[in-house]
Simulated scan of single mutants.
Amino acid sequence: MLSSLKKPLTVGTLLAAAALGLPGVATAATVGPVDLGTLPGDAFSTVNAINADGTMVGESLPQDVRMRFHPVKWDSQGRIGALPTLGGEQGRPVAVNDHGVAVGWAQDAQGETRAVRWAPDGTVTALPWTGSSDAAVISRTGVVAGGGSTPQSTYVALRWAPDGSVTQLASLPGGGQAVVTGITADGSLISGEAWDAAGNQHAVRWSATGAVTDLSPANQGNPGATAAAINDFGVIAGTVTEAGQHVPVAWKRDGRQVRLDWPAPPASATPRAINRAGVVVGSGEAEFAQSRAVRWSASGVTVLQGARRSEAVAINDSGTAVGNVESVAARWAADGTETILGALPGGDYSWATGIARDGTIIGRSDLPYGWHAVYWPAS
């Protein structure tokens, strides 16, 4: 059974299993999602994040040619409510912490995009920065990180303290552009990607003071290195480039790079998420094969779904991973048991995008006329 495969894993083994159509794991019964609906007058919706209490945030959209984001919040029972903007039409919350504080962006009355924070009661506050900005992540302690444009039109990484004061996170020497990808629970470390003077992409980490650490100084390839996610202990999962392929790696808190098990080139693999225990999930490819959902742990690599196109995109601290199998949402228990999560009535496809501590899963499902945000209650 492919779920029991540990290191070493070869390209030939993966391809042979796919060709035979062997299931990666035992499969549980299909279950269906709960429709989170839209605001009155809108047709589509997307849920972007969920916290430990089941509060969810995302956007509701009208059915027209323009993508107009109306910021919304759902309570743990799936009841939707509108969130305010800064006087403009659009806004988009992308993260929410366990205290119910959400962050993202909203337009002001002049149509400028500003990084914002929504309090649990829905009150919206603009986070200071001169120029357009957006918030991407928030820690349990209320530290927010994201980015903003400078007068030179360079997108730089930013950190806002709980009191709202802003710090521009350092760029690489000679470089400028940088993006945030994650934050620790205490807000002390931020993961991201930054570009050097030659335009090469590097995986980086920032401290609370804004100092930058280049995690991939030797990686000069295109697209270079990525830092996909960071856990609460400061371990970062990402990739470096070797022979034109994505090689999965993890960087320890001390900056030491550890290679995650995967076949040597020409295979590629891409981590997407990491939990507190350091378990990483993502997807991997082998020569002439489609992507396969995989999990990396201290005991090696596990192919979660070896027979069909799949990816794992999120994992909670209990080790339950979620993702997609042939464009249908799926869940993998810590023991590897796969559950296909199904779609809304009338739809054929669904995508799981996140999972809460208690196992509640968020995502979206297609409908004959578009898509709706959905969730699968913890089982």
Rank of each mutant, 00 (worst) to 15 (best):
A356M: 04
A314G: 07
A329M: 07
P62D: 03
T209N: 11
I138K: 08
D108W: 05
D317K: 07
A52V: 11
V101T: 15
G224D: 06
S149M: 15
G111Q: 03
A218S: 13
P40R: 04
V240N: 03
D108A: 04
G306K: 06
A109Y: 09
E311M: 10
G81M: 10
A178Q: 07
T130E: 14
A211Q: 13
G104M: 11
T154S: 13
L5D: 03
P84H: 04
W105P: 00
T130W: 01
G347V: 05
T27H: 08
N275K: 05
H372F: 05
R292K: 15
Y369H: 11
H70T: 06
Q290C: 03
V247F: 02
P217F: 02
L22F: 12
P93F: 04
I190Y: 04
A314N: 11
S207L: 12
A136E: 14
A161S: 12
I361V: 15
T154W: 13
P62G: 02
A29M: 01
R117V: 01
R357V: 12
G146R: 06
R159C: 02
V31R: 14
A157L: 07
G210W: 01
R272W: 04
A157R: 03
A289D: 15
G146I: 12
T337W: 12
A203K: 08
A16H: 08
W206P: 07
D348V: 01
N97L: 07
A194T: 09
A161G: 01
P368G: 06
D317P: 11
I50W: 12
V279H: 10
A277C: 00
P33C: 04
V294M: 11
N200V: 14
G300D: 10
D261T: 09
D98T: 12
V137I: 06
T123F: 05
F288M: 11
D186R: 08
T130H: 10
G346H: 06
V143W: 04
Y369N: 14
N222S: 13
M56N: 10
V101W: 08
A229S: 15
R308A: 14
A197P: 07
P8N: 10
G12K: 12
L2I: 01
N97Q: 11
H99S: 15
N51Q: 04
T360G: 00
A314H: 08
V25S: 07
G221K: 05
R256F: 02
P93C: 05
G323M: 05
P217L: 07
L127E: 06
D98L: 12
S318C: 00
G354K: 00
G147A: 11
L15N: 12
D261M: 01
A228Q: 10
Q220T: 14
G147E: 14
A145K: 01
K73Y: 00
T239H: 00
